[in-house]
Design a protein around this nucleic acid. Sequence first.
DNA 1: TAATTTAATCGTATATTTGCGATATACTAT
DNA 2: ATAGTATATCGCAAATATACGATTAAATTA
Lengths: 104, 104
Amino acid sequence: MRYTILIMLKVIPYTEQQIKIARYAKAMAHPARVYILKYLENCCGCFAGNIVDELPMAQSTVSQHLKELKEAGLIQGTIEPPKVKYCINKDNWEEAKALFKDYF
Amino acid sequence: MRYTILIMLKVIPYTEQQIKIARYAKAMAHPARVYILKYLENCCGCFAGNIVDELPMAQSTVSQHLKELKEAGLIQGTIEPPKVKYCINKDNWEEAKALFKDYF
DNA sequence: TAATTTAATCGTATATTTGCGATATACTAT
DNA sequence: ATAGTATATCGCAAATATACGATTAAATTA
């Protein structure tokens, strides 16, 4: 007796662009982070403390949001003891902009 | 004796736009959903089953992602028994596009 | 009427996110 | 040295997200 085995393969279909868009979108998926990014665009080189003052949440929570934006590559921090100055990461910000523009 | 009471109020600072951007970004924060939106842009009026076939995940999981996109307002489904035809929600898609364009 | 098809929903498990207070760290000023 | 300042990190709780298989619902076909 003969058997025919049919194997259906589903390959992960996402393009690099789609994965990046999802990652950037995730970074922007909270109003506080949307706010921070806009704030830093106008006020590049401000300190973490300034952002904490703007937002209705605890210092530790803001720090966490900053960390997420940093890990997503959208911002970067430079230490100016005892403060930390934050800026938009221009390269990645431009990349995100381009990705979303192409996508929409 | 007299007391002066200083009350510091932090008002939720987010604009409507920022809240909407966060909501749309959240909807796009998973590669499968980024994929689905793009797929529906090219193939408006395709069925849920077609999307399931494209994606490396269970039918129930795809259904959940579709639900999220629907709840975010980015897609809409019309029943054509026993199938469901999905489409981009043009109004909201255009709104999202405009919001992100302004934002970046 | 019974079986099939298509998609949504339910129940569940696990992982991630969000938020907070407390604590740690790393400098500065007294 | 001690106290103060600015920020990050830890530990925890609650909420939300992700994924799956099983079941349900609604219409169609046999």
